Simulated assay, not measured.
Amino acid sequence: MPLVALVCGPALAVESQTKVPVQAKVSWVKAGQLPAPKGFNQSIGIAGAYSAFVGDYLVVAGGANFPKGHPFFDKGVKQYYSDIFVFDTANNQFELVAHGHLPSARGHGATVVVGNSLYLVGGKNNDQAFDSILKLTLDDNSQPVVNAVNQLPFTWDSGAAAWQDDSLFLFAGKHNGVVSNAVCQFSLKQQKCINKDKIAPIPGLARADFPSIKHHKQFYVFGGANVLAGKGRYVLTDAYAFDFEALSWRTLTPITVKDQPYSVAGGGVAVINDEQFILLGGVNRQVFNDAIFQLTTSAQDRLSKFKQYYFSLNEQEVNFSRQQLIYDLNKDNWSTLSKEVPFTGGAGPLAISQKENQIYWISGEIRPVIRTPNVYQATIEPVQ
Rank of each mutant, 00 (worst) to 15 (best):
A5F: 08
A13T: 13
A13I: 14
V14D: 10
E15G: 12
S16V: 02
Q17W: 05
Q17G: 11
T18R: 11
K19Y: 06
K30N: 08
I46Y: 09
G48Y: 08
F53C: 05
D56M: 00
D56Q: 05
V60A: 00
G62K: 07
G63P: 00
A64G: 12
G69A: 10
K75E: 08
S82Y: 12
D88A: 06
P103E: 04
S104D: 14
R106H: 09
H108Q: 10
T111D: 00
N116R: 09
K124F: 10
I133F: 01
L134F: 12
D140A: 12
V145R: 14
V146F: 00
N147D: 10
F154G: 10
A161N: 07
W163Q: 10
D165L: 13
S167W: 01
F171N: 04
C193N: 04
I194H: 09
L205P: 00
A206Q: 14
R207T: 09
H216V: 14
K217E: 14
F219V: 10
L236Y: 07
D238I: 05
W249R: 02
T251Q: 13
T253A: 15
T253N: 13
P254M: 02
V257Q: 12
D259Q: 13
G266W: 05
I272W: 00
N273I: 12
N284R: 06
V287G: 01
A291W: 02
L295R: 11
T296I: 10
Q300R: 14
Q308N: 12
Y310K: 02
S321R: 11
Q324I: 14
I326P: 03
D328A: 08
N330Q: 14
K331Q: 15
D332F: 03
T344E: 06
T344M: 06
G345S: 00
N357P: 04
I359L: 06
P368D: 03
P368H: 07
R371T: 06
V375K: 00
A378E: 08
V383Q: 09
